[in-house]
């Protein structure tokens, strides 16, 4: 799970790519994702990955994306092995494995360059219910808080003699219980306090809540979005697979 959190959690950055409208970033992500899906040859996937890496370099998140890629490799190797065992087809198995990398990395590109704030905005644009959006916001907002909580609990339990990294996997998993229970209890208490604070600040008071910040797409956003679509269409055309059923 650690590789997931590394490649999907936003850390502040201020490149041109970061400053794009989140909708445009999402569009780019979806389009590269789609391109990876319709690609029929490994070199095509290679092109997609290369494209993502170039964008990542421009967005100054190359190292993080590269790390995500490296970490995805294990899973991707697994996909390769399973596929190969069943299909005995070297080409299709490696295509699946590479495609998986491309898909993960294209999604990761969106998440590492998009602030939780922007994510919230995107969710609102998709007209998700306010409660759902707020639940998401709270979950992300409290990730660092809960991580600190967990560290403190670990220290406390270690100081009482809990040996976290001893024994086989089963044993280690069992060792986590004394960490998890206080963590969950803390979270429940915290959620009660959050509920009180929300009530006290009129959460849900208005049918139509307003927003402090206004979001408007700038010209550069429109240009980049258009360019992304054009590139996608060109890629799709050159893979001449838009209308043909997806191979493999």
């Amino acid at each position: 799970m650690m590789w997931l959190s590394g490649g999907f959690i936003f850390r502040s950055g201020n490149s041109r790519f970061h400053r794009l409208d989140p909708r445009v970033k999402l569009l780019i992500s979806i389009l590269t994702f789609a391109t990876a899906l319709i690609a029929r040859y490994i070199y095509e996937i290679g092109l997609v990955v290369a494209f993502i890496l170039v964008v990542a370099a421009a967005a100054t998140v190359l190292t993080r994306i590269a790390r995500t890629m490296a970490l995805t490799a294990t899973f991707s190797a697994f996909i390769f092995v399973v596929n190969f065992l069943f299909t005995r087809n070297l080409e299709s198995s490696s295509l699946y494995a590479f495609r998986f990398v491309a898909i993960v990395v294209s999604t990761s590109l969106f998440f590492v360059t998009t602030t939780p704030d922007e994510l919230e905005r995107v969710m609102k644009m998709f007209r998700l219910p306010r409660d759902v959006v707020f639940a998401f916001v709270t979950a992300v907002r409290f990730v660092p808080v809960m991580m600190l909580d967990a560290l403190q609990i670990m220290d406390a339990q270690k100081s009482r003699g809990l040996e976290l990294d001893k024994g086989n996997i089963l044993r280690r998993a069992r060792n986590m219980i004394p960490i998890l229970i206080p963590l969950v209890v803390n979270a429940v208490v915290r959620s009660g306090e959050l509920a009180e604070a929300m009530e006290s600040r009129a959460y849900g008071a208005s049918e139509r809540p307003t927003s402090l910040v206004e979001y408007r797409a700038k010209r550069v956003d429109k240009v980049v979005a258009l360019a992304a679509v054009v590139v996608f269409l060109l890629a799709a055309y050159s893979f001449y697979s838009l209308l043909a059923p997806i191979a493999l």
Binding site: T115, P116, D117, E120, F134, V137, T138, V140, R141, L194, A197, M198, R201, A202, Y203, G204, A205, S206, P209, T210, S211, L212, V213
Partner: peptide, 16 residues
């Protein structure tokens, strides 16, 4: 609740 200080200060007002 929010990811930036400014937006959090506005939280109650947004709700209203």
């Amino acid at each position: 609740f929010m990811f930036t200080v400014e937006r959090d200060i506005a939280f109650g007002l947004e709700n209203l």
